[in-house]
Amino acid sequence: MSDEAQGDGANPVDEPIPFMQQVLDNPFLLLFIGITVPTVFYLIWGVMEIVSIPIAD
């Protein structure tokens, strides 16, 4: 935010920050889920399927 007053969006004090906003305000939590979800559902699942293809003799 720049130096000017930009009142409209700032959280009024004393109001608890909603849970979802806390999640969205935490880039490292987002980074964690953004890596975990595709790793599990795409990479690991995909690799497991290939590994379990029987090898021809």
């Binding site: 979802m20 999640v23 987002l30 889920i33 953004g34 979800v37 559902f41 795409y42």
Partner: peptide, 17 residues
Amino acid sequence: SRMAFLLYILFLQLASA
């Protein structure tokens, strides 16, 4: 808009398949 970006973070990369 932020929730829409969150959906990207969660799901967009799965489309690799």
